[in-house]
Design a binder for these strands. Structure first.
Length: 384
RNA sequence: GGACCCAUGGUGUAGCCCGGUUAACACAUCUCCCUGUCACGGAGAAGAUCAGGGGUUCAAAUCCCCUUGGGUCCG
């Protein structure tokens, strides 16, 4: 039912093309996994839009289903695929990222790569508005306060696993402790050790035959820790291996960290770079052997009026597009580009119509998949 | 013919009665940001000789007079 077949390996880099087979169809890799936190890709897309945006697969979040308390209903309905009319392969993240995003991320107001936030560590001030929603982390689990209603949510490795089984994704993820790029080595080691303990507890649960597990390498920005975690995850009986946690303060740090991992990681399994998906890193991460990557950015910036294009990012709300009756991207075959001009989408954003964000979401996903298809073809042709 | 009201960045307004720090706010504009989604959001910049002129005063968007433009009401 499940298989990862490598079709072509580059001689110039660690890039490869492959096919991941699942009970819900295949994924051509390298592939982008659109984020569908609550089961649907944000921006008002429905299942008829998946074809429009060439979506191959999607990733949903365990924490938010616990927060909403809807995992049982999804199970009764027959799982995420049926509940949300998504026929393709589905991934579910474990909830480990929320330890960062609702914890240190929310508290200090930065992302998992610090690069986006200029200045040194001392510049980091606690943001007043954001409350830390992660109360306690122990070897048994993590105590959250719900961002929705403030109630306590205690997430354990077993609960994460059991919830992911209820949701019924094809690929489920070990519960890890996602750290911050500003953790010192001691903190990063504690987080890594906790993650490893949690992994073992997670694996105690019997996983159904129609699901497979991805392990997650932790260790933050420290080479020694990354190497140790890579060895640990290599030894787990998991289908694929994800690279998680903090990835440095600059994109170059991230490439360096993946480089360390690559010296130890098992290359026969698919590699998933968690949470990164900017246009300018695509080629670099693929050359580092990344087969899967997911990111909130392409769909989020779409809702914030930014379109991905061969010219880079375009803010469609700007007045320069007011009288531009061409499509976003010249030869783009996406639903938005085939039916709407920049001027029309510009108007829809000005008018605050939700259709605007929907159109750009479809475009950005289509554009990304198109870029990936080009790269896959280059790898096949030995030109990458 | 008579009485009254209004005029403040691109737009809409606050401030005026009871003069006193860099004239405030919203939207629009521009820039930057968003990376295993608590987020269709966040940060910042630019932009006004307060209709024009005169007067009172140490000091006027603010008080007084005139002019111009717009509006309302009574004949």
């Amino acid at each position: 039912m499940f298989d990862f077949k490598i079709l072509k390996k580059s001689k110039k880099s660690k890039a490869r093309t492959g096919i991941i087979k699942t009970p819900h169809g295949e994924i051509k890799t390298p592939a982008f996994i659109p984020v569908a936190t609550l089961g649907v890709i944000k921006g008002g897309l429905d299942f008829t839009d998946h074809e429009k945006s060439r979506v191959q697969c999607q990733i949903t979040n365990t924490f938010h289903f616990l927060d909403l308390n809807y995992a049982d209903q999804v199970k009764k309905a027959g799982g995420l695929h049926k509940f949300f009319h998504f026929p393709g392969p589905i991934f579910t993240d474990s909830g480990g990222f929320q330890i960062f995003s609702l914890g240190k991320g929310a508290e200090f107001g930065f992302g998992k790569t610090g690069s986006i936030f200029p200045g040194d560590d001392n510049d980091r001030k606690k943001t007043s508005g954001n409350k830390k929603l992660v109360k306690k982390i122990t070897e048994n689990g993590v105590l959250f306060l719900s961002p929705r209603d403030g109630r306590r949510i205690y997430l354990t490795p077993h609960l994460s696993c059991e919830t992911q089984i209820k949701l019924g994704a094809d690929f489920i993820y070990l519960l890890d402790v996602c750290g911050s790029p500003f953790d010192d080595k001691k903190t990063a080691k504690t987080e890594m050790d906790l993650s490893h303990q949690w992994f073992e507890k997670f694996m105690e649960v019997k996983i159904p035959k129609n699901q497979r597990v991805f392990g997650i390498i932790q260790g933050g920005i420290y080479r020694e820790l990354r190497e140790e975690s890579t060895r640990f995850v290599n030894d787990l009986p998991v289908f694929g291996i994800a690279i998680g946690g903090a990835l440095g303060k600059k994109k170059s740090d991230m490439y360096k960290i993946i480089g360390w991992i690559n010296k130890k990681i098992d290359f026969s399994r698919p590699h998933h770079l968690l949470g990164m998906g900017d246009l300018d890193i695509l080629e670099n991460i693929i050359k580092l052997g990344i087969d899967l990557f997911d990111c909130a950015l392409p769909t989020r910036i779409a809702r914030h009026a930014t379109a991905m294009s061969a010219r880079g990012y375009l803010n469609i709300k700007k007045n320069i597009f007011r009288n531009n009756f061409k499509s976003i991207e010249k030869n783009c075959g996406c639903f938005a580009c085939k039916n709407y001009s920049l001027a029309q989408i510009n108007f829809l954003f000005k008018a605050k119509e939700q259709l605007a964000g929907r159109l750009l979401t479809i475009h950005n996903l289509y554009f990304l998949e198109n870029q990936l298809e080009k790269i896959r073809k280059k790898i096949e042709a030995g030109k990458f």
